[in-house]
Simulated assay, not measured.
Amino acid sequence: MEFNEAKALMFKKLGTSKIMALASSVDDYVMVRNVSCLFYDDKIYFKTDKNFRKTQQLFKNPRVALCVGGVQVEGIAVNKGLVVEEEGRKFETAYKKYLWQSYNAYSHEDTEILIEVTPVFVEIWDEDENRYAFQTFIDFEKQSVEVKAYDQKD
């Protein structure tokens, strides 16, 4: 499998939006919580209040991991500023469309910032047509892919 094919597989599995578990750490203090994510421009985006503990962790250590349904993404988080100030307001428009309940419940224009996560390394758990498990590892820095069988075939 080529790098671009693996990257397309990852974004296909993620779809347009997902609730993902976000892990962050500062000084060996690890936190995990759910965030509502959108996927576009080969990146992962979510919004958060700039005053939350998780956000303060991201400011101190931008290395994060996100996980949902067998897809784990390790990446670098960047504060892109207030959601309402994003050029073209792409996130806000898609968030209203795909995550309306969350948008309606958690919109605070003066404190909500947009976080962009650039994937660095991805691990996808999957299975073939015979239900044999395998992993696909995608290294974004090296633009390489490795597929490893997990189950032994008889």
Rank of each mutant, 00 (worst) to 15 (best):
A8C: 10
K13Q: 11
S17V: 04
K18Y: 09
S24T: 12
S24G: 08
V26C: 01
Y29W: 01
M31I: 08
R33G: 04
S36A: 11
C37P: 00
C37H: 04
F39T: 05
Y40V: 06
K43W: 00
I44L: 12
F46D: 00
T48E: 02
T48L: 00
D49Q: 01
D49R: 04
N51R: 14
F52R: 14
R53K: 13
K60Y: 03
K60M: 11
N61F: 07
P62M: 03
P62Q: 12
R63G: 02
A65D: 02
C67I: 13
V68N: 04
G70W: 05
V71T: 06
Q72E: 14
Q72A: 14
V73I: 15
E74S: 09
G75C: 08
A77T: 10
N79T: 10
N79P: 00
N79I: 08
N79M: 06
G81D: 07
G81I: 11
G81W: 03
V84L: 03
E86I: 08
E86F: 05
G88R: 10
R89K: 15
K90S: 09
F91D: 03
E92V: 07
Y98L: 08
W100L: 12
N104F: 11
A105K: 13
Y106P: 01
S107P: 00
E109T: 12
D110T: 14
T111G: 04
I113N: 06
L114Q: 04
I115P: 00
E116Q: 12
V122W: 03
V122N: 07
E123S: 10
D126L: 10
D126A: 14
D128G: 09
E129M: 09
R131D: 15
Y132R: 11
Y132E: 04
Y132H: 12
T136F: 04
S144T: 15
S144Y: 09
E146G: 02
V147P: 07
Y150L: 15
Q152C: 12
K153V: 15
K153W: 10
D154P: 15
